[in-house]
Every structure is written in structure tokens, then in C-alpha cells.
């Protein structure tokens, strides 16, 4: 085991040095050759593959993503769509490093560290990025027992140096905007409805105003009025410069927020499922007809 170092150094060797905060000298294709669009990219995936090597009953290799490349521009909202099992959630989890990509690079332009390969950056660096720059909204809230909703949200500000009263004030502001009734602020979200939990979940991510926000079906359990409020906040955050990658089942919601859409497809005839990116970047972003 590497100790917080790049796990890929066991397999591959030196290519992961580039993401370690050391000046990047040899980006694939050469940094001089990068065109303008790439220069503005805040997130750039290069041939990302994620497979699961499962050893429980018999050994199986299961592909969730195969050779996926795309870029996301600064301040852009990239929507992700595709059938169930196409690897949409896996893609977000690879960017957040809940999953470790099997191959490929995920370049992220960090405010704190410069160019970072999220596929193999040290764990402590990822922890700092999660605290300050990269947010993730999962489909379900992971509730911490006995912690009040307001604190679930406020605690995200504590590592950034906020005092508790200050953090709570900001949390309440946001909970109000998301129409969580005041009598729920001091209750533990364990007993909340699905939609209420989802809004607490969103508040947790929104409150730090991350530079990059990953959203996995953030409006799935909300009614249409609530969807409206959430979309409004998403747009506001976007206006403040946050780059977002979001999965939506709901085409209408997607249309209202996404600048570009990436469609993932299951390619048949492979062992396990195989996904490939159809569209990348601003030019090609076709909707499935």
C-alpha cells in the first residue's frame, strides 16, 4: 500500500507524478498543443475506465465505464444522461474518488493545488478538496444519528474557519430558501421525508459554494414546486461561478439547467456492462431523439 501516495504507482509508474502538485511538464498531447477550449476546462477526463474486480464467489471483472473522455469548461453545467446501469453514478463517484478509476486521468484545475489528477491524487489532498472545492450530492442523504438538520448543514463550514453561530446562521438561511420549515431545523433528518432529506442534502453541498459540484439525481424525490426552488438555487450557484456535473432522469429539469449534455450508453456484447461517452464538450451534445 502506498501511504496516501498514488495507488497507481504500483501498476503504472511515473504518470501519476503530474497530479502531485509538482509542475506539470508532460501532459498528454503537450500543454502547448492545447487549444483554447481545453485551457478553459476546469475538469478534463482522459480515457477513464472503471472496472470492478469482484472476488466473492468467483472472480468477475465488471465494467462500469470504458475509455471515457470529455471536458467541462469553467462555469459550465454538464448534464449526464443515459439508461439505468450505463455508469452515470459511477462516473460522478470516480470524479469524487469514492471509486478509484482503473485507468485514465481526471484532471481538475484546483484553486489550491493547481492541476490535480483526481484519479490518483493523495488521499489527504482529496479530503482537503472535498472540504473546500468539490461538493457531491448523492441520491440519498446519509444521516448521522442525533445530529440536528441545521448542524448537519452548518458543520460543513467549520473546517473553513467559521464559528458555530455564524455557520448555523448561514445554514438556516439556506434551509429557509429550500423551504424546510423551522420546526424541523433542530430535528434529526433521520425522520424526514425523502424530499426533505434531499433538500438537506442539497443544502449541505450548496453551503460551501464549491467550485465543482457533482449532483446525482438531485431532484428525483421532489415535487414540481420544490424542483423549481432547487433549480433556482442551482442557477444562482452557477451564476456565482460553480461548475457542475449533474445526472437527471427528468428531461425537463435537465433542459432548464444544463449547457451541454453527455449521453452514456450501454454497449451490448461485452462482459458486464460497458459505457461509452457519445458527446463531449460544447460542440457535440445531441439529445437522444
Amino acid at each position: 500500500m502506498g501511504r496516501g501516495g498514488c495507488y497507481k504507482d504500483r501498476q503504472a509508474g511515473s504518470h501519476c507524478y503530474e497530479g502531485m502538485g509538482i509542475p506539470v511538464t508532460a501532459l498528454p498531447g503537450g500543454s502547448k498543443g492545447r487549444d483554447k477550449k481545453e485551457e478553459e476546462a476546469i475538469l478534463s477526463l482522459e480515457s477513464v475506465t472503471k472496472s470492478f474486480h469482484l472476488t466473492l464467489t468467483r472472480t468477475i471483472e465488471l465494467y462500469a465505464l470504458r475509455d471515457l473522455s470529455f471536458t467541462v469548461g469553467r462555469g459550465e453545467f454538464l448534464g449526464i444522461t443515459g439508461p439505468s446501469g450505463a455508469g452515470k453514478s459511477s462516473l460522478l463517484k470516480c470524479i469524487y474518488r469514492t471509486y478509484r478509476p482503473t485507468c485514465g486521468h481526471i484532471w481538475y484545475e484546483s484553486a489550491r493545488y493547481g492541476s490535480v489528477d483526481l484519479a490518483c491524487a493523495p488521499e489527504r489532498q482529496i479530503i482537503h478538496l472535498r472540504a473546500g472545492e468539490i461538493g457531491y450530492v448523492s441520491q440519498f442523504l446519509k444521516v448521522i444519528p442525533r445530529v440536528a438538520a441545521v448542524d448537519v448543514v452548518a458543520e460543513r463550514l467549520i473546517p473553513g474557519g467559521y464559528s458555530w453561530p455564524e455557520a448555523r446562521r448561514k445554514a438556516i438561511e439556506l434551509l429557509t430558501r429550500l423551504h424546510i420549515p423551522p420546526e424541523l431545523w433542530d430535528a434529526c433528518p433521520a425522520t424526514f421525508s425523502g424530499g426533505e432529506q434531499q433538500r438537506v442534502n442539497l443544502a449541505r453541498a450548496f453551503i460551501t459554494r464549491p467550485r465543482l459540484l457533482l449532483l446525482d439525481e438531485p431532484t428525483a424525490s421532489l415535487d414540481s414546486a420544490m424542483k423549481g426552488h432547487v433549480i433556482e438555487i442551482i442557477k444562482e450557484i452557477k451564476k456565482n461561478g460553480t461548475t457542475m456535473v449533474g445526472i437527471f432522469h427528468d428531461r425537463e429539469v435537465m433542459d432548464r439547467v444544463a449547457d451541454n449534455v453527455l449521453e452514456l450508453n450501454i454497449v451490448k456484447g461485452c462482459s458486464g456492462s460497458k459505457a461509452e461517452g457519445r458527446a463531449a464538450g460544447r460542440e457535440a451534445a445531441p439529445w437522444p431523439q
Binding site: 501511504r3 496516501g4 498514488c6 504500483r10 502531485m20 509538482i22 493545488y113 493523495p122 489527504r124 489532498q125
Partner: peptide, 19 residues
């Protein structure tokens, strides 16, 4: 446990980062 590259990375990131 850890190869040379791993050690070098651990050392560098410790300098860049935290102890």
C-alpha cells in the same frame, strides 16, 4: 510495502502539504 516512487511522492506531498 512501498516502492521508491511511492516514497518519493509521500515525501514531496508532505513538503507541499502537511506534516
Amino acid at each position: 510495502m512501498m516502492n521508491q516512487a511511492g516514497r518519493a511522492i509521500a515525501a514531496v506531498s508532505a513538503i507541499n502539504e502537511e506534516q
